[in-house]
Every structure is written in C-alpha cells, then in structure tokens.
Design a binder for these strands. Sequence first.
DNA 1: CATGAATGAGTATTCATTCAT
DNA 2: TATGAATGAATACTCATTCAT
Lengths: 198, 198, 198, 198
Amino acid sequence: MPKSPERCQEIREETRSKILHDAMLYFAKNGFAGTKISDLSKSIGIGQGTLYLYFKSKEDLFHEIYSMIDYGEETQKLKLLAALPLSAKQKIHKLSKFLIDRLEKEESFAAMIALNAQATLEKNDFTYEDTSYQSDWYQYTAKIIEQGQKEKSVVTGSPMKLADYYWGVVYLYSLKKLFTARYETITVHDLERILLRD
Amino acid sequence: MPKSPERCQEIREETRSKILHDAMLYFAKNGFAGTKISDLSKSIGIGQGTLYLYFKSKEDLFHEIYSMIDYGEETQKLKLLAALPLSAKQKIHKLSKFLIDRLEKEESFAAMIALNAQATLEKNDFTYEDTSYQSDWYQYTAKIIEQGQKEKSVVTGSPMKLADYYWGVVYLYSLKKLFTARYETITVHDLERILLRD
Amino acid sequence: MPKSPERCQEIREETRSKILHDAMLYFAKNGFAGTKISDLSKSIGIGQGTLYLYFKSKEDLFHEIYSMIDYGEETQKLKLLAALPLSAKQKIHKLSKFLIDRLEKEESFAAMIALNAQATLEKNDFTYEDTSYQSDWYQYTAKIIEQGQKEKSVVTGSPMKLADYYWGVVYLYSLKKLFTARYETITVHDLERILLRD
Amino acid sequence: MPKSPERCQEIREETRSKILHDAMLYFAKNGFAGTKISDLSKSIGIGQGTLYLYFKSKEDLFHEIYSMIDYGEETQKLKLLAALPLSAKQKIHKLSKFLIDRLEKEESFAAMIALNAQATLEKNDFTYEDTSYQSDWYQYTAKIIEQGQKEKSVVTGSPMKLADYYWGVVYLYSLKKLFTARYETITVHDLERILLRD
DNA sequence: CATGAATGAGTATTCATTCAT
DNA sequence: TATGAATGAATACTCATTCAT
C-alpha cells in the first residue's frame, strides 16, 4: 500500500528535522572535525546512507544547521525589545531572563548559541555570511547598553565591548549546559549584573 | 665522530620542548580531531617522522601536553596568594592583574588555560587525572571569595559557583586571545568586578 | 529497504571467508612483513578499507588465519589413523598418500602446512598457542613409528626425531608447491621411505 | 694522530666483514622485507649511518651477501669430490659428513644454505644470476647419484629429483639450526640414506 | 670514519561517500 | 526510501636513507 504523497512528504520532513536537530547537538559537542558520520548517524538512529538522502555532504549538513538556526526570529525579538518604551534596566532584565530560561530548558538553544559563537571565534574555512546575525545581536545589545549608560543604570565602558562580554558569558553557560551533566547555572541576577551598576 | 652524548641529549630536549610548545598552541586552536599531523609538523617546522621520534602517537603527544602544562607552579602561586596577609579585595586584584597580564603577553598561557578548561568540560575518552589541578584553582579562589564575603567586599553567593564563573571568564578571554586577531581584552577591573561589590 | 539481516550476515561470512582464504595463500607466499595491504587487497579483489571491516589490523588478520587453519579436523584424522587396527606400514602408507594427494590438489593445504611449520620455526613475537596442534601431529606420528619399530617395518631412531624429519619433508614440499611453478613432487614412496626400512 | 693508511684499510675491511657476516644471519632469519635497518644495525652493534658508508642500500647489502657466499669454493670441493676415484657410496658419505659437520659448527654455513635455497624458491624481484651455483651443486650431486645408480648403491629415480630432495633436506636442517634453540640434528646416516639403498 | 637525529616516500588505517539490495 | 557493506582518498605512522656534527 503506497503511502499518500502528502504523508511521504511529511515523513521526509520529520526525518530531515530530526537529523538537523540531533546533528546540531552532536556538532556543538564534538565540533566539525571531531564528528564522524558513522557515529553521528548511529546517535541519530539512522543508517549512514540515509544521511546522504537528505544532505549532499557532511559539510552541507553543517551549513544547513547554520541556516536552520533561527537567528531571524531571535534577532527580531531582540530588535523589538531594544525599541520598547522601557528603561534599559528593564530591558536588560527581560533579555537576561529570557536567555537563562531558554538555556535552562532547551539544549538545542544552548547548541545554537555555542555553534554561533564558535563560528565567530574560529573563522573556519567555511564562510558564514550569517554570522552577521550575531553582530546584530551585539548591535541591539550595545544600543540598550548605551541607553542604560545615559540612564546611569549601566556600567561605563565601550558598549560593544560590554555587549561582547555579556554574550561571551552566555556562550560560556551554553557550553556548560552542553558538556556538564549537572551544572549550576548562572542566575538572571549574575547575568544582568555584568551590565548593571549595583 | 659521534656527537657527544651530552650534546645529543641537549638537542633532543630542545626539539622535544619545541614540539610540545608549538603543538600546545596548535591543539588549543584546532582541537585534537582538527589537527593533522602533516599540518602540525609543517607548522612546527619539522618533518612528520620527527614527531614520532619523540612521541608514540598523536594521542600520546596530546597527553604529554597535558602533563607538561605547569599546573604545579601556577597552583603554588595561587595557594601562596590565598595565604597572604592581605584583604580579599587586594588578593582578587592581584590575581586578576596577574591573569590579565599573562593572557596579554603569553599566547601559550592562554592555550594552557583553554586546553585545561576544555578538558574539564569535555570529559573525553582520555582521562586527565590532572584536572584535579583546576579544582585546586577553584578551591583556592573559593577560599579567597569566602574571606571576601566575610569582609563584605565580595558579592554574595556560593563561593564555588562564583569561582567557577570567574575562571569561566578567564577561559573566555583565553579563547578570544587564541582565536581573535586583534581582540579587545577585558580589563582587570572587569574581571575583579565579577567578585567584588561596587 | 534494508537488506534482510540474514542475507547481510551471509554476505559478511562469505567475504570474511574469502579474505581469510586468499590472505592465507598470500601470507604463506610473501610472509608477514613482505605483504602490503594494498597488494593483498588487490589480490583478493576488494578495496583496502574492506579488510578493516572484517579485521582490526594486518596483525589481527594474520592471527585469525592461524586460528582458522583447521588443525582440529586434520589432527582428528591422524588420531583415528593411529588407533586403527592396521600395521604401521599400512598406516604410514595411508598417511603419506593422503598428504601427497592433498598437497597435489590444494594449494591452501600447502599454505596451511607451510604457515604452521613457519610458526613453529620462527617463534615470533606473536604467540601461537595453537602450535600445540602441530606437536599433536608429531605425537600421533611418533606413536605410529613406535608401533612400526616393534613390527620391524620402521627404521630405528628416536620416534620424535623421525616424526620431525617426516613432517619436515612434508613442509619442504609444501614450500615447493607454493613457490615453484611446475614442481616435481615427491612420490608417496619417497615419503614413506623416510620411515620404512627397504 | 692519523692511523696509517694500511691500518685504516684494515679496519674498513674488518668492519665490512662483520657487517656482511652478521647481516647474512639476520637476513636468513628475518627475510629481506622483515629486516629493518634500525634493528639490523643495532644487532651488528654499529650506527645506522655506518651501514651506508659500506653499502649503498639495503638491497645492495643483500646482493653483496649473495656474492660473498663462497659458492665457488664449495662448488669446487663438490666438483673435485665428484671426480675422485671413489665409489658413489663413499662420495655420498663424505659429502653428507661434510655438510652435517659444517651445519653443526657454523651458523653462517646454515645461513648461506638457507638464503641460497630461499632465493631459488622465491624468485624475488631481484635476479640472482648466481643461483646457477646451486644448480652446479645439483649437477655434481646428480652426477654422483648416476654413478651410484650404476653401482646399484643408490636408489632408483630421476637423479635431478633425488639431488633436489637431498639438498632440500639439507635446507630443512639449516632452517632448524637457524631458528630452533636446541635442535636435534639429522645424522649423517639419515642424510645419506636419502640416496643410498639400505 | 661514526653517529643518531632528521627526513619524506612508502605503508597501514580511517572515514566520508557510494551503491547494491 | 533505507540500509550497511564496499570503496578509495585522506590521514596516521614507519622505515630506508641522508646529513650535520
């Protein structure tokens, strides 16, 4: 009995999604070079050949994971937050709370942050045009910081450097989430304190 | 006429040291899986075979680098600092200044911190008994933090968690040093502020 | 659609057997050190990588060949022969005829004899516990010789030494079979004459 | 103080001889492919580089060993023996006694026989024009055998095949001498019995 | 002359990718 | 479509040869 074409399509989508999701975690933990297709496919629970029905190559899969990471949505949220008629302190609190919450709950969010930061750090052979997204995050964060500095609620210093530091700590705790079995996460207070005066 | 045995020994020591030093940087930047022996030896400036005169295998070299990292010396310094008759604030300042200075000047110090932290995070197949050293760092840092909390100069919170956070930021800037061409380093003030109340 | 697990298993067994068989001949002719994996796999008619799906290493393959050699069956036959209610002369004739016939027909029998004798001679790093099998052959042959000496049909001398000499000649002609294109084999008469009085 | 040129030459000759002698044993035991220059030079007790002051290459050394083997002298003896006014039985006895005695005493004689036979068997890439020497041995042995067959003291059969068998057994016991720590050698009687009627 | 450290061509082994089923 | 056995290019490792001392 042939599956209906729609159901077929649906199954393909599900498998593709599963691969992307599981592979993102795997790559985040092991890096590109440290990931063997044989191990990866075993960890996903599919045959090695199956991967190649969905992705042209290991590199292609890696790229797809980047484009899959929904920077757009996150960036949008951050942009909106920056534009909201709130005090910088409130914005920083909201952002920090949002980040801590998602890190806490979603391992894949941690993986996304980690992969993203690694891409920025490592400047691999591959060029990720999309790393511009991260600098968007920086941009909007820096904007909030500037606002906060005017409002005297944020510490002094180059806004970009502070933003970089703030996101660095987020990256740090993404790594902890990914690699440490039972990790004590940073609190919202700790995170916002990076930017806020006491 | 044979080379004198002493001179021979000397040459061997020099070459071995050079390999360990250069390979540490290379591994820190590229990871174990991402490091090809052909590239590594080229980067060191020796033949591929030469590596195998000094180390049994790629894995062996990697291990040796860990045991080479001079935890002992650094740990000793930190222990002494913790025991000094100074205020916690002063100790934290001294430690932060020391770390920032060395990170600034020595790439190999950054590599050592990065490899060490990665070992702690990754819990690879390899077992690094010496990671206990890092927890020594934590231990002594936590001790200083406790002192500071009594003196009301340090923020509240679990001393171990704060120590972990402090060293996490040091790791973060080690990565930046290693991977970013011209990076804006964190200042001593930024680093000590993690622990100190404003 | 996946291959049926049974069919898969079957294919694996076939390939494994083919490798063992062909590699036995190759090793017997070229020795361990003289065998390159590239040449061996070409001679078997498989890719180099395929070998490593079945055997951990070149050395492992070599070992497996030893354990594969069906000493058991041959030893059993010899044991039965020794126990048969026949004159020693008849037994020696039967044994000699059997050996000459198989040497004549099966190159792999010659390879087995040759590898076995080489293992006994060479006492490599590898330890072949199974070389005890050969001494079983010696044992049973010596038993037949003793019987023959009582029956006055066999020449005088230490039975073990005579057995060793007898099997030495069998080894010699195994080598000739393996290495000489058109070799004049020894006759059954020549072989039995080693032990029998004229 | 410079050594006198004569003394210098002398030393060179001595070293060269030592290398040839020790290497012959080493090659006989391990084969060409199984012999590593590093191991060989260690076993000789010289530096690796020193070998290359005396021989162009591993292959060259191997060749030199062949040409060094004093076939000429041995062949000459055998030729003389064949021509002597003695019965074939006496000649075979003398030859067998000579061979057993030298095998017993000189490991290097065993090595020479073994290398020579291996060259004949293996037909390596290298061409040993000098293997003709072995066929000289065969030739003269066959001549004695023919004489003996006329005298009715030698068993019937193709003289060349019998010669081949006779030398095969000599090869066999050369191997035993080389590889077996304490081996029971064949007796002169056993050896001559291959050819002689009882 | 002698040495052994250094080299890179050659060999063993791994792993991304293909393909028969 | 899914599988895992098969492949060979890429990578780790060895060893004959060279060379500075």
